[in-house]
Amino acid sequence: MKRAAIIAAAALALTGTTLWAQEGPPSRTPAPVVRLNKADLPGRVVFEHSCAPCHGAGHGTDGAPTLPGTAALQRRYGGDPAALLEMRADIEAGFIRLFVRNGSGAMPAFRKSELTDAQIDQIAAYLRATAKASKRK
């Protein structure tokens, strides 16, 4: 990595927004929040409490266009499949379990004491229903 790139990455990593704050945040106009038809299922609350703080549809904090988990999936998939989990009708519980129980990148694994297998099943059902309902619009 070039030295200047290291500096930029470091300043961002270390002080959060400190470097770019001097230059202006990367986005003063966050991306518009996606309108979702959220399914009225038990998994909605579980998702909103356990997943949405990183993977929700809202924009990120202090000028970030998206939340960190959504941003990470956008970087990984380039938008296909959708970075927003609530727009993913294809995700099965087993797939979610794989990532939740093992972690991925900056996302740590989640323990059964904080998220049960039954709750993961509920999340999967909620995501499928929400994605299908939202795409109909």
Binding site: A9, L12, A13, L14, T15, G16, T17, T18, W20, A21, Q22, E23, G24, P25, P53, C54, G60, T61, D62, A64, L67, P68, G69, A71, G105, A106, P108
Partner: peptide
């Protein structure tokens, strides 16, 4: 241009600052 993170300054918890995590931690 500001370095203050508004949510944490006003006691509103979030995971927005997880954006600073690079690599695997």
């Amino acid at each position: 241009p500001t370095s203050i993170k508004r949510r944490r300054s006003l006691g509103v918890p979030s995971l927005g600052e997880w954006k600073i995590v690079r690599d695997d931690g």
